Computed example of a mutant assay.
Amino acid sequence: MHNKKIDKGHPVILTVDVVLLTLTKDLLQVALQKRDKEPYFGQPALPGGYVHAEEDIDSQAAARRVLREKLGLISPYLEQLYTFASATRDPRGWSASISYYALLPHEAIAAQQSDRLLFLPADDLPQLPFDHNRIIDTAVKRLRDKSTYSALPCHLLPELFTLSELQQTYEQILGHPLDKSAFRRKISDLGFLEATSKTRKGVHRPAQLHRIKPANKLILFNRTI
């Protein structure tokens, strides 16, 4: 049993933390920022901040605000992950963090955030402040689990992509190779992509570019990839 004395005179600290995941250098990476205040000043941590009761209509609005104000980013895909709460996770007192995870292609992040973010492999992180390692581990597991039965990995790709790039993205997230013929047959049967008239230069011939069908942010499959 933890013997830390709880100060009942202070209100609960309520924050949001955002796990921004991207693919770069063939690795799933998480975006971190160096903290600009205590506790843990100067240490890399998840982008986060207090909930602003006067302007945040809900926790998702708070998470979107954190992404916008701290990183200058808007993520088309933002999903609530879990609420991490205890008397010991924050040295300032009893706290609750409503965590979210967001997905963006690395190109979209790097174009605006060349010097504000630190990207580290999600599977090989140092010890981070608070319980941010646990939050990241939970987000990575959620992404990998949902990638087996959804189009979620598409949000780590540019708007237009080849089928080879899509397969590589699934493989990088899941951590194992996929049979090319079987993968393409499943993708075709599921029908969540549409071919465009554009192509990209390939090794032997131009590769056709695809995109997710309009108005489809998250397609769930009736079977696993």
Score class of each variant (00 low, 15 high):
L152S: 06
L21S: 07
L157C: 08
E171W: 11
D7L: 14
E38D: 09
R68Y: 14
R211Q: 12
Y170D: 05
P153L: 01
A122H: 03
T199M: 15
D56P: 08
P11R: 12
A110Y: 13
A108Q: 03
G49E: 13
S99D: 15
K180P: 06
F183Y: 09
S75T: 10
K37Q: 12
P105F: 04
A195P: 10
M1A: 09
V51M: 10
L220Q: 01
N133W: 11
A53T: 02
K213S: 07
K8E: 15
H204E: 15
L143K: 10
R68T: 10
R64C: 08
T199I: 15
L78S: 02
Q172T: 05
L81N: 07
L21R: 09
A111I: 15
T169S: 09
A87I: 01
E38C: 00
P76E: 08
F183I: 05
L21N: 09
A63W: 13
L23I: 15
K70A: 13
S99Y: 13
L71A: 07
V203S: 14
P206S: 08
G42Y: 07
I187F: 13
P121D: 07
I219Q: 12
H210P: 02
T24F: 09
G42P: 01
D26F: 12
E107V: 00
V51A: 03
P126N: 05
I135K: 04
D115R: 08
A195K: 14
Q80G: 14
T22D: 12
L27W: 02
